[in-house]
């Protein structure tokens, strides 16, 4: 399967080609994939250099003229370094755009903390009305980006190397039911689905999947609920979506296990797979957590 970051560049380039209200702003990163479209449309494809504060506000300034900007760099610099620009340039001005962050929690495992943003989703989730997307592979990346650009408002698309084998249709605010069971409900968000499916094999549980982090499908969760046990699996800070589960089930006594990336900084390099395992997000780690959480009370 195609690499998701190459896919986002290809899709963004195609959107610029096919719609002259779409602009693309980037900050050196991914430039190797964008040279051709930049040469063809220099007015609407702009590399701002290593200037991330400017990157975000140039996107917002383009939006103020009615264009639909795609704003792209590594998630750490896009969201964390330039967060006030996202908050004020887009959200407070009340203009829309599509922020596309690459790298996620540990794509750049060897690069260390500077290039990792496990907190991007939680941070952006403080903004009113933002749509957050975590496509599970390159096919979903293409669909999500097209859908977000065609839509309105502010979106964040989190593009990472970790991928699920199957692609699901993009249905913002609606969970896909991957498997129905009588027991717990396991909610897999983004590219953790394959690990969740493997970890839940042989268990009588429901598995829900979505690439749409926000809006959160509260009705879908309620409808799927068998036993009042919910397991969230998110490949960013653990518990980021826990408040939505609490809100969806405010009148239902329930238990919640929120799996995700630890808050503690793991000062390790190595491969993304090693980091996935270190945070207990591989199939074996998720299976261990489920075993403990779902063990019948003694």
């Amino acid at each position: 399967m195609r690499d998701a970051r190459r896919q986002l560049a290809a899709t963004a380039a195609d959107l610029v080609e096919s719609d002259d209200s779409v602009a693309l702003v980037y900050a050196e990163i991914s430039g190797q994939y964008l040279r051709e479209v930049e040469a063809r449309h220099p007015d609407r494809v702009v590399n701002v250099g290593i200037r991330e504060q400017l990157l975000v506000n140039v996107g917002a300034g383009l939006a103020l003229t009615g264009l639909r900007p795609i704003v792209h760099t590594f998630g750490s610099f896009l969201v964390e370094r330039a967060f006030e620009q996202v908050k004020l340039g887009f959200a407070h001005q009340d203009v829309g755009g599509v922020l596309v962050g690459a790298g996620g929690s540990f794509d750049m495992s060897g690069a260390g903390r500077t290039h990792q943003s496990p907190g991007d989703v939680a941070l952006l989730d403080t903004l009113p009305g933002i749509s957050l997307h975590a496509p599970g592979n390159a096919v979903e990346t293409d669909m999500v980006l097209r859908s977000a650009v065609a839509g309105s408002g502010l979106h964040y698309v989190r593009v990472v190397g970790q991928a699920n084998a199957c692609a699901f249709a993009v249905t913002p605010g609606t969970f896909h039911v991957v498997r129905r069971g009588a027991g717990a409900t396991v909610v897999a968000i983004g590219p953790v689905l394959d690990a969740v499916v493997a970890a839940t094999a042989g268990r009588d549980v429901t598995v829900l999947y979505t690439s749409t982090v926000r809006p959160f499908d509260a009705c879908g969760l309620r409808a799927a609920l068998g036993s009042p046990d919910v397991v969230l699996v998110e490949p960013w800070l653990a518990g980021t979506s826990a408040r939505h589960v609490a809100d969806a089930l405010r009148d239902v006594p329930h238990r919640l296990l929120a799996l995700g990336v630890d808050r503690a900084e793991h000062r390790r390099y190595g491969t993304p797979e090693q980091h996935v395992a270190a945070h207990g997000l591989d199939a074996a780690g998720i299976a261990r957590s489920l075993e403990e959480f779902l063990r019948p009370a003694a």
Partner: peptide, 12 residues
Amino acid sequence: PLAVGTALGLRA
């Protein structure tokens, strides 16, 4: 910075 984006958007 917003104005730079706006000037680019108007030019485009």
